[in-house]
Every structure is written in C-alpha cells, then in structure tokens.
Design a protein around this nucleic acid. Structure first.
Lengths: 350, 350
DNA sequence: ATCATTTGTGCAATCGATTGCACAAATGAA
DNA sequence: TTCATTTGTGCAATCGATTGCACAAATGAT
C-alpha cells in the first residue's frame, strides 16, 4: 500500500502538497494538482483513514447500540442507520448488548477508545450507567425510539400518542365500541403514551376500554398469546383489540386461530410496527408503521451536526415523527348483531 | 482524554514503560507496574485504539458485507458474526450493498482504507470485481453461505446437498411419493446442490420429481406464491412440496390458503432457514435450520487465524456444516386414498 | 574481585496522515 | 522601479500509541 510519501516522491512535491491537492483544503496550482492526481492514479493510492483519523480526531464512524437482533424493530434501526450513515460517508459499528450491562459497557468503552464520532442508542434505560461514561467524554449521543428523563440527551421518537389515536379512530369508524389492549411494559414512557392516545380517543368516540380489558405484555410473541388468552378467559368484553406491537398481535392471532375464533369476523386485531409477517400472513395484519427510515436519518443527522460544530451550547433536541396507519385484513366491522364478547368467548374457550 | 504521556508523567516513568506495563509485552518490575496501574486508574486512562491501530497495523475490526437486510438470513449473519467477533475482542463494521456494485465497491474501498483486519462476504457473485480489489491487498477474506469457483478463497457453507436429503427422507417416511420443488436461482451452486440432494434421495426412495414439478424461484415471498400457482395451474402431480427457503414456503402457504387447499391434509410443505415466521405462523412450518451461529463463528475464526500468522501459505479452507431438520405442522401423511394430485388441483384451481 | 548475563528502563524512530508557519515567487498598485 | 499583497509550496511538529536499540543496575558465575 503506497502512502502519501510515496505519492509525493513520484509527483516530485512534498507530502503537504499532495494532502492539499487531494483534500482541496488550500489552493494548489492547476499544474501540480494534475501531476499529483496522476501520481495518485498510477500508484493506486488510497488514503489511510486510520492515520487521518488520528490526526484530525474524527473517524467518520458511528456506533449503534441495540439490545438484541431478534426483533425486527432493531433490524430496521440497523438497516436504516447504515443507509443514512453511508449516504453521508460514515460507516457503522454495531453492537448488540443482549441486555447485558457488562456487554453494553464493554461495547461503549470500545467505541470511546476507537474515537467514534457519535453513538446512537436504541432502548437504553434511564438508569443505564453508560450515560455517565458518556458524560465524561464529549461524544454526541442520540437516543432512538425512547425518551429519557434527562432532557439534555437528544432523542428521536415516533409520536406514540398519535399511533394509539390512529388505531382507535380506525376501529371506531368501523363501528367498534368495546375495546381491549395488550400493551408493552408500562414502566416505559412511550408505551404509556400509546395507551393514552388509544384510550383518550376511544373514550372521546363513545367507546369503552375497561381496566380488565388491558393486559400488560412484554412485546414478545408469547406475551401476545398469553394476553389474549387472559382476556378471553376472564371474559373481558370487547370486539376490537390493539396489541402495541406486531409480535404480540401475531401471538394473539395465533391463539385465536387455535381456539377457532375468526378474525376479523368475531374480533378485530391491530398491531404496530409493520413487520414482514404483518403482510405475509393470512389474514394480513392491520398495523401502524413506524417511520423508521426517517427516525434513523434524523439520528444520524443529529450526530453529524453535533460533531461538526463542536462545543457549542447544546440545545435540546427532541424529534418526533408521525406514524402511519396501514389497514389490512384483521380489522373489520364488529359482529353483526353485536353479540356480547362474553358470549363468543363462552362458546369457544375450553 | 488523558494519553499515555500523561499517565507516564504522573507515574514518573517513560511512555515505553507504561505501554509495556499495560500490554505486558515485556517484563516490568512489580513496583513500577503497580505505580503505573494506579496512575492509569487515577486518570481514567483509556488507550486510544486509533493510534494503536496505526502503529501495529491492525484494527481489530472486521467488515461484513451483506446484500440487503430484509431477508432474515442476512440478519442472522449480522447477529452471529457480531456475537462471534465480540467474543474475540473484535468489532464489526457492516455494510449492505443493496446489490448495487457501486455501493459494494465504495464500501470495500472504505474498509481497505480503514485498515480492517478481514472481510466476510455473504453472497458475492463469482464475477464481483471486488475480489480483484481484495487481491491487491492482503486482507483476509471469507465467503459465507456460498462457494466460489476460485478455490483460494475460504468459504463457510452449510451442507446444502444434505439439506435436500433431510427433507426428502422426512417426506418419504411420511409416505409421499410424488414431489415438487420451488428452488432458488439455479445459476448458484448451493441451490443446485440442494436440489440434487433432494432429487437423488427422492428417486432412491422410489419417489418422483418430474421436471414440470420444479419451479425456479428467487427466494422471495412473491416467488413462492407464483411458484405454487404455476405448479397447481399446470396440474403438476405431487403431494409434497419443498421450497428452498422459508419465504417462498410462506408464499406458497399463503396462496394455498387463498385457494382453500388444506396443509398438510392435501399438500405437505417444507421450507429452509427456520425464520421467525416458521414457528409463529399457523400451521407452523416444517423446515431445515441452517447452522448460522456456527457458520459465523467459523468465518470469524478464519479471519483471525489468517491475520495472526500473516503471510504463510494459504491452505484452502472450505468449511461445511450440517443442517438440521425441524419437523412442525406443515408436513403430514399424504391424502388418505392417495387421490391423484391432478384431481385435487382440478377441483380447486379456478 | 572480575567479568558475563540478565533485568528493567528510557530514548527516539515510526505508523501515515494534517496543518501552522515561514518563505519564495508571482502579481498588483503606486 | 519599488513596495505591498497574494499565491503556492515545503519544513517540521503533531495526533497517541509501539518497539528496536542502548545502557545502567542487579545478579550470578568463577
């Protein structure tokens, strides 16, 4: 691998000149520029980014921390963040922590030592000690898909309240009045927001969402199954169910199919996330699409913005983007003569 | 951020000594080691990996090239490669090329300039000019999930022939005799291998796999739908179908459900890959699991191995791992009185 | 006590770029 | 023609580590 020095020698100029000719930081005479360019081509010279990074203290690397790679949500973050980063000439280092604090810490330490330009977190907890580590450096950080108590940390989220609202409006317009919900963990703000949007809209529209029609899940398939089973078995009355993510919706559908309950004829189901399965399955799932691409693009932009104008006062940045409702087959009109859900359940469950 | 020099000053020794105390490359007296360690702790010193990489010409970074991030296969590669790399103290830079040669080239160039320790490719084509680029450097390369004509490039693949064999054996043992197959692109060796394993075993077991029962797909959902539609509409005769990946199997199931054909009562279906949907859907999909974790671990090991013993003669490395059959609900005994498939199709299609 | 060997440490070069400063040549203004 | 300004280039320091070599002190052998 030829270095700057080799190119300089071949072109008969100093390394400074070659560097300037390449980067265009300072004017170089037309003539020498051409000579340098020729030398660069002839030798197949490729600037060494490690050396460059060391000198200019910027690596054009962004770190992305995800808790795991099973959920499609995180895959989307990886995918779109990589896309956005690549478009800006950055590369992406990813690390999944498996929700293991040690691994998380190791990974962050590594990123710091690698002199990374910024870090994007998805789903960190408020108490993550990692944030303390980051406070000690001045590496820009963005939280994606969650907001933290600490307001000085920029975040990018979907308008979660709105997502609940969209689903409720849709179901209300189909004629539903009795609702149920399988939520994500309610210690997390965004999930409470989703629920609030859903509930507020349901009630405003003359519907009901009783407490016993709410099941707190954990975003996994199994939890969707459990949730719907619980709701059916406790004879909660509802004709429409919203699961706060698609995996739980799929789980619910799975159990309904097991029990021979027809969707959407007897119960309407909606999810959130728009995972692949949601359109591949039958019946296809009505859901809310998160604007993942935009979220990631924003996150990357914030990082790059903060690295460029280094030490300026950090204004608070909180980006909130609109979700989009995607209507498919799992939602329909409520049962014809509005059979009480209780009765339906009674027939079927055990 | 304190540097070696700062630590050295605080500990009252030279930077060389600090470096040696930290890395343990050369013996340092117990006493100074303790002094250095204390200084390191007191200052919260973290070695700068960029500087280190520049000097020792090794970054402990591995690049992973995937064509896209929609297919779960590639997600698995990312996931397990990251896991394996992290376990060995390496970090992972990923890039998806979207099958765009320019993007691919840009990404590879970047990796080279970043002085990456090795590159893992999934799904490169034989004619990818990228390999030429890599020939010019001596960066270790591994191909995963595909073998190339060029034998000097190490690869890690599943035993694809075996996967076809496993499926065929399973279906034969259930009593099936008339088979169909929706393949991946047949210009790719591994797909021909899968088909060969399937066909050989079917025929050896007294079954049939007629030419008109083979449909060449492209691994996507839609292509599974099209494939089964084609097979049904041309009245190919079969009671069991193998789709060479799960997305196509799901597509096929989707269409069968549309046409009201019962699985596995009327047709048995098997896939390959063991994607999430395969166990979440109903009926759950019989499939072949690829040993992704092992594949990725091997790939990382090969890279690390080759970086350490730098310029030795490269022996040819081709790792081949065993697949595993996972029997679920979409495969069962063939229809009771062995109704000719033609008749079944006749009733249903259109 | 003398010399060879081992042990521990520091000096300074090095990896490959970028960049402040100095300076010569070219240009423009008077 | 003379002086001020602009333009283009090179020297050498720098980023933060690692490491070959030199050398002093400690140790061991005789």
């Amino acid at each position: 691998m030829p270095s700057l020095k080799d190119v300089a020698r071949l072109a008969g100029v100093s390394t400074s000149t070659v560097s300037r000719a390449i980067n265009g930081t300072i004017r170089v005479s037309e003539e020498t520029r051409l000579r340098v360019e020729k030398a660069v081509r002839d030798m197949g010279y490729k600037p060494n980014l490690v050396a460059r990074s060391l000198r200019i203290r910027s690596t054009r690397l962004i770190g992305l921390v995800v808790p795991e790679m099973q959920h499609e949500t995180f895959i989307s973050f990886i995918r779109f963040t990589e896309e956005a980063a690549e478009a800006k000439g950055y590369n992406l280092i990813i690390g999944s922590t498996n929700s293991d604090p040690d691994r998380e810490e190791r990974f962050i330490e590594n990123l710091i030592r690698r002199n990374i330009d910024g870090i994007i977190f998805s789903r960190v907890s408020d108490k993550s000690h990692v944030l303390k580590i980051l406070d000690r450096t001045k590496i820009p950080v963005v939280i994606i898909d969650r907001t933290l108590e600490r307001e000085d940390i920029p975040s990018v989220v979907m308008d979660n309240y709105e997502s609940g609202k969209l689903v409720a409006e849709h179901l209300l317009s189909l004629g539903h009045r009795a609702f149920a919900c399988i939520t994500g963990p309610l210690d997390i703000a965004i999930n409470r927001d989703r629920l609030a949007g859903f509930r507020d809209t349901v009630l405003a529209g003359g519907g009901t969402l009783e407490d016993k029609c709410i099941y707190e899940g954990n975003f996994k398939f199994e939890s969707g199954k459990k949730g719907i089973a619980y709701l059916l078995d406790t004879r909660a009355q509802f004709t429409a169910l919203w699961a706060q993510n698609d995996y739980m919706a799929v789980g619910a559908l799975n159990l309904l199919s097991e029990r021979g309950i027809k969707v959407p004829d007897e119960i309407s189901i909606a999810g959130l996330d728009n995972i692949q399965q949601s359109w591949m399955m039958r019946p296809s799932l009505t859901t809310v699409a998160q604007p993942f691409r935009e979220m990631c693009t924003h996150a990357v932009d914030i990082i790059i913005d903060r690295t460029s104008r280094h030490d300026e006062a950090k204004e608070k940045t909180r980006v909130m983007l609109k979700p989009e409702l995607i209507v498919r087959e799992t939602t329909g009109r409520p049962p014809e003569r509005s059979v009480p859900a209780e009765q339906i359940n009674g027939e079927r469950s055990q």
